[in-house]
Amino acid sequence: MSDTQWTVYEVFHQQARGEPHVHVGSVHAPDAESGLILAKEQFGRRQACVNMWVVRADAITASAYADADIFQHGTDKSYREAFGYETTRRAREIGDSQEI
């Protein structure tokens, strides 16, 4: 049996200028241009949208869920974060009462 359901394109939409493009789903489409036209109604008929991307699903390279542990921290990485510092307490101690 031949598959006549075309190619899968992943769909990303941007709700407003300045916002990021967010993945909203995928469509079957014969080519990218018609993919956009078809995705517009399946994923843009209710929510605000100013821009839409489609990309062939097979063009995406994804990491494996089995490798999710590569994103975990083996040691304390709070030195990368603002909350990793106690400047408010320390500043008070030296008489600085302003917010940083």
Partner: peptide, 20 residues
């Protein structure tokens, strides 16, 4: 029709094409 589209797509991620 849109829901069918979303659902068949979800089923496809389990390895069975929409045509089938």
């Amino acid at each position: 029709v849109g829901h069918a589209q979303l659902l068949y797509r979800a089923a496809e991620t389990l390895g069975k094409p929409r045509e089938e």
